[in-house]
């Protein structure tokens, strides 16, 4: 299968019929939703509603997941047909016709976080003469850095053509001041392998969620989220925690015994 990036510039490739085809395909909807959930998981945001930038938002398949999760978003895309499809679908986010290679036109500290699903590999293209991908990547990351609040995070799933593209993307992000790296999901599977760029603009109080992944950047000490603590606890921890909670609420609970949370013998 040939890559869309090799066929035509994005704003030409995603014409009316391609935008329709893309957006109404249940297969595409499913994959984009899954990757957006994964990006949110990696971002590890606190619960309250966030203001999120969706880079290369297309017709809003990724944005709709942000809405579902209770967030507010603004999306940028270079393809008018994709945005028109988004308008027809009445997505909640604001849509901007914009080339991210020319920068993110928002003032400093606008967004809590940013995501990008299947878009930033396009920045590595040089479709017309006079286009310098390195310059565009740098402009993108510099202006993205500024538009995020301090400690704001960016997670981008992308389809690199080769290792050099990944290097160029990571390199530009580092120059712009981001810390972080690349997370690889399903590395063994040629078909399902997915690249996620996970970056922090300055210092964050909450680290990204690195559960079950290896990253090609030194890992900083990480604090587990409440959810992760819950997922990791044993049956015994769980009962202890529930008992404490009940005591706090003034309920009478059984004393701890050494039989607590142990499987009992079945008696007849």
């Amino acid at each position: 299968m040939s890559r869309p990036e090799e066929i035509a510039p994005a704003e030409i490739f995603y014409n009316d019929s391609e935008s329709q085809k893309y957006t109404t395909s249940t297969r595409v909807q499913h994959i984009q939703a899954k990757m957006t959930f994964r990006a949110l998981e990696l971002l590890n945001l606190e619960d309250f509603p966030h203001y999120i930038l969706d880079v290369g938002c297309g017709s809003g398949l990724s944005g709709e997941i942000l809405t579902e999760e209770g967030h507010f978003w603004t999306g940028l895309d270079i393809a008018p047909s994709m945005l028109a499809t988004g308008l027809d679908r009445e997505v909640e986010g604001d849509l901007f016709l914009s080339d991210i290679g020319n920068g993110i036109p928002f003032r400093a500290g606008t967004f809590d976080a940013a995501i990008s699903i299947s878009a930033i590999q396009w920045l590595c293209n040089a479709d017309q003469s006079g286009i310098d991908p390195k310059k565009r990547l740098l402009r993108f990351f510099n202006s993205l850095f500024a538009s995020l609040k301090r400690g704001g995070k960016f997670c981008a799933q992308f389809y690199p053509l080769n290792d050099l593209q990944t290097e160029n993307i990571l390199g530009a992000a580092k120059i712009a001041g981001f810390s972080g790296g690349c997370v690889l999901d399903d590395p063994e599977s040629k078909k399902n392998k997915k690249y996620y760029l996970v970056l922090t603009a300055g210092r964050s109080e909450r680290n990204i969620n690195l559960e079950n992944v290896t990253m090609d950047a030194p890992e900083t000490t990480r604090k587990l989220s409440k959810k992760q603590i819950k997922e990791n606890e044993t049956r015994k921890d769980y009962i202890k925690r529930k008992k404490e909670l009940m005591k706090k609420r003034g309920k009478v609970v059984a004393n701890d015994s050494r039989y607590m949370a142990r499987p009992r013998k079945i008696r007849f």
């Binding site: 940028l76 945005l83 308008l87 604001d94 901007f96 016709l97 914009s98 080339d99 020319n102 036109p105």
Partner: peptide, 14 residues
């Protein structure tokens, strides 16, 4: 237009 701001820049400004 149609609620969508156009932020594409002409080549001399990009």
């Amino acid at each position: 237009k149609n609620s969508i701001p156009n932020f594409l820049l002409p080549p001399h400004l990009a």
